[in-house]
Design a protein around this nucleic acid. Structure first.
Lengths: 249, 249
DNA sequence: GAACAAAATTAACCTGCATCATGACGATTG
DNA sequence: CAATCGTCATGATGCAGGTTAATTTTGTTC
């Protein structure tokens, strides 16, 4: 069940058993990736999309000096370049952050789904719009929050997404990122991310050490980062059900 | 022909005559708006979407202090809250910036289109993904560019979009925004936007005065803002054709 | 477990932008 | 036509975060 986490508890877009089976049948291949490998380059035509099963991946834009701005990170369950299906080429690069496993879905299969299953197609569309909603939250982060709040917001978001994917208990989760990665996400320098991390630690809000995030004060971190999870479209009722109950709904 | 500008010269997503007619038939109403009116609130259920015909609109998120971060501005031809169709509620507010005219398309009509016309549906999907691509360019702007480059990048982007909409000749265009609006777009203060504008004027790159942008040195402004229009997915060939030739293709 | 590379940490210094304040100009409004 | 408001403009001051550089810690490989 490679598609298990896809849209797992997203309000109004949870897959039916038949839809999930159809998507599962669309997978042509399962690939593994080493950390920090480029998976797709901006501008090159794509005829497949990637559903992340395990590990973390990211999407980024380069500036003239070669510095990266991450525009998204992806957690297991994300259909991370589904937008390549309508767009045909991407405007950014895609890369792995950690060791990762992903399912490959050829666009010919998506073509067939688009013809035959309008309801599933709409859910695929929804999934790409969720990414856009996350983009907007990131814009808010970069445009209106100071360094500490940016990092707090990012950690809250990632925690919420991993809770939704069943990979965080709401307090602790594995996050195979370096401080340099966080800097590229939050539009800061590595040095300053380090200062921020120390501050969060000293304030007993959050500790991020050896690829493990531990949130000591969830309410405090949420307030500091002005984090409101509404944009993640998580269905709290669906989330409290077991996966089996969910699929049956 | 209210939909005339929609996806006018977007690579791989130009509407056929039949598709354009279908969309035109889906319009239930044409509305006008006064400047700076809120059109949709975050969180409230929507059962219609808005195709902008004339004027400028924006989407924004509020911070705790009530300051706004604009996450998008929209020009004539943009289907600005089409993403409300799959999402059902929005994660942000929508407002007019200037006097504006817009066509309303009920979601029931989009529902019908989704069932009957998969190719048109894919083009609608494409349109929402174009907005996401612009979000990513804005993330790059906020995360990696300094104040001057941010404003330069924004002006280049808006120029390119308006050229595509037939509302700029590539050098001069009407833009009914204040310096405060630009500040909310670029994550700066009004004061600093003013200083940046003076700098651009003194460097003979660009003049923005009484709602008119005049680009004196397109190449210089593009270089300063590290602007690369690839993410706008403009089909240069289609753009050089007349609208009639375009529709026939 | 030695050798090396990658990541985290910290200090010293400096700059770009925020903040605060004040004034000019033009468009509305009473 | 005086008063008010929105926008543009500009100066003075301070600080958040960038820059550079050096050191320590952690993880990896043979």
């Amino acid at each position: 069940m490679f598609t298990e986490r896809f849209l797992r508890d997203k309000r109004g877009a949870i897959l039916t058993i038949a839809e999930r089976a159809r998507l599962e049948a669309a997978i042509s291949e399962v690939k593994t990736y080493r950390p920090r490998k480029i998976i797709a380059h901006a501008g090159e035509p794509l005829n497949q999309s990637t559903l992340l099963i395990e590990g973390f991946m990211c999407r980024y834009l380069d500036d003239r000096a070669g510095l990266r701005q991450l525009v998204a990170i992806h957690v297991p369950g994300d259909f991370l370049d589904l937008h390549a299906f309508p767009l045909k080429t991407l405007d950014h690069d895609v890369a792995s952050l950690t060791n990762a496993t992903a399912a490959i879905v050829p666009h010919s299969e998506l073509e067939a789904i688009a013809e035959e299953m309008p309801a599933l197609t709409r859910k695929l569309w929804f999934s790409t719009l969720l990414d856009a909603a996350i983009h907007r939250a990131w814009l808010f982060r970069l445009g209106r929050l100071d360094a500490t709040a940016r990092v707090a917001h990012f950690l809250c978001e990632t925690n919420a997404r991993l809770v939704s994917a069943g990979l965080s208990d709401g307090r602790r989760f594995a996050l195979g990122l370096t401080q340099a990665d966080v800097a590229e996400i939050c539009g800061l320098t590595t040095v300053h991310v380090n200062r921020v991390m120390r501050h969060l630690r000293e304030e007993r809000l959050c500790v991020f050490r050896s690829s493990l995030v531990e949130i000591l004060d969830p309410a405090g971190l949420t307030a500091l980062g002005q984090f409101n999870p509404a944009y993640l479209y998580i269905d709290d009722e669906a989330h409290s059900l077991s996966p089996v109950q969910r699929s049956a709904s």
